[in-house]
């Protein structure tokens, strides 16, 4: 267990460092000098040079990367070059919006997708199963931003059931919840289909295993056999997939936040790229990567918690 955690943390650090270095390279490839953009078209070359120096952009790239990591160790992600507020403050201010969005989307997808998959598996090859199958595949292939745009047009503009933009008034939980519905739907829809297919497949496999025959041979009610004896095994792959799919979820969240003009990490990355606000870009990408690493680890731990065989091997 301890060894596992050490391995995981080391791997996480490596992933984060790679991501950050890669991003540095990409920033340098993107045309447009941040200092020039920040200062506007009428800035003098001297002003631009001094701004570049202040932002550390005049240093060679490896030095910039090292400096970034050195600061990171002190918990310092630098300053927002526009508002001059610490980047950590900005990123952590936006993080909860994204986390809530992802969480809601996944819970929504799991609450519909898992029972749907179970139902399909238990009613294999019936009409309902086939319809679920077709709809699931259609859902999987629908990109989040298309769903976001369509649902925005239909439910917010035409039908006006839900608000179109923003995250709701701060402190007003009901208002915030209403604002979550469409974005979470946009992200979660393809996951409903995905989870339904996945749970159906693993449920079918588990139901054919010998221990299920044993449970039946003792006359256990079918409800107990399915929901207590089989489902616990059948959701194991789902947990892994959700953990690993965190990267997709994050990128889906990014698009969705832009479409719905919702605050959040995705919107933050977008806005800061547009304004070449690189410290904020770096900070938000770093946090997203950490989030990704944490979520895969958490899914492993949840799996271990559900499956005693993994628990002993950790």
């Amino acid at each position: 267990m301890l060894l596992y955690l050490i391995k995981r943390v080391t791997l996480g650090v490596v992933i984060v460092m790679l991501a950050v270095t890669l991003l540095f390279c990409m920033i340098h490839l993107v045309p447009g000098d941040p200092a020039r953009i920040l200062l506007g078209p009428r800035a003098t070359p001297e002003l631009i040079a001094s701004m570049s120096a202040r932002m550390g952009l005049d240093l060679p790239m490896p030095v910039q990367v090292l400096r970034f990591f050195a600061n990171l160790l002190r918990g310092d992600l630098g300053m927002d070059i526009i508002t001059n507020r610490p980047v950590t403050e900005i990123v952590f201010g936006q993080l909860p919006y994204t986390l809530w969005l992802i969480f809601t989307a996944i819970v929504f997808a799991a609450l519909i997708g898992i029972p749907l998959g179970c139902y399909s598996a238990l009613h294999r090859n019936t009409l309902a199963d086939r319809i679920t199958g077709v709809v699931s595949v259609a859902c999987i292939t629908a990109p989040a931003f298309v769903v976001a745009l369509c649902s925005l047009l239909l439910f917010a503009v035409t039908l006006q059931w839900f608000p179109a933009v923003g995250a709701g008034t701060r402190g007003d939980v009901a208002d915030q919840a209403v604002h979550l519905v469409l974005p979470a739907f946009a992200i979660g829809l393809s996951w409903i289909g995905y989870l339904a297919r996945l749970v159906r497949a693993s449920m079918l496999e588990v139901m054919g295993e010998n221990h299920i025959r044993t449970a039946r041979a003792y006359g256990l009610p079918e409800r107990v056999v399915v929901y207590r004896y089989a489902l616990k095994l059948a959701v194991l792959p789902t947990v892994t997939v959700i953990g690993v799919g965190m990267g997709f979820l994050l990128s889906a969240a990014l698009f969705t936040e832009i479409v719905f003009a919702r605050p959040g990490i995705g919107k933050l990355i977008y806005d800061s790229i547009v304004t070449r606000n690189y410290p904020v870009v770096m900070g938000s990408v770093l946090i997203s990567t950490v989030l990704f690493v944490i979520s895969t680890t958490v899914s492993d731990l949840v799996n271990a918690w559900l499956d005693p065989r993994i628990r002993t091997s950790l």
Partner: peptide, 19 residues
């Protein structure tokens, strides 16, 4: 089943629920 008749299955390693 499991009341008037009960069965010991072949292949013990897979007859019990692993979780």
């Amino acid at each position: 089943r499991g009341n008037r008749m009960s069965v010991v299955f072949q292949d013990p390693m897979s007859t019990l629920n692993p979780v």
